[in-house]
């Protein structure tokens, strides 16, 4: 289970971020509080996704075999795509 959580870590971060934003905007509507929560959640999730991407990329060099190398690669890519998606997802709070 730990391996799967690591493999999908970035995408799980995106999920938490998206549903956090949805919950905040549904309850608090288009308010300053909702924007602040969005900004805070986005910063936290960006930090986690970035860390996952960096850790995955660094892990590739230490991988003992091809399978572990592959797991690190996917984890790094998952973190990277999550970083971009989280950043994109948080932007509406600044624009609307």
């Amino acid at each position: 289970m730990r391996s799967w959580a690591y493999l999908l870590g970035g995408l799980l971060v995106w999920t938490v971020h998206f549903f956090g934003l949805y919950t905040a905007s549904s309850i608090l509507l288009t308010s300053t509080t909702a924007r602040v929560i969005t900004a805070l959640l986005t910063i936290v999730c960006l930090a986690i996704a970035g860390t996952l991407a960096a850790r995955g990329w660094a892990g590739r060099a230490r991988a003992p075999d091809e399978v572990v190398h592959w797991v690190h690669t996917i984890a790094a890519l998952s973190g990277a795509i999550a970083f971009l998606a989280v950043l994109w997802q948080g932007l509406p709070a600044l624009l609307i």
Binding site: L21, S25, L29, T30, R35, S78, I81, A93, L95, I96
Partner: peptide, 27 residues
């Protein structure tokens, strides 16, 4: 994998005309 996750964050685009909060619509 990314499609499998992100596709669960788009359902309300079928409901843009229903009058959801503007911020939700943006997300």
């Amino acid at each position: 994998l990314a499609t499998g996750f992100i596709s669960f964050g788009v359902w309300s685009h079928h409901m843009f005309a229903t009058g959801m909060p503007a911020l939700s619509v943006g997300f």
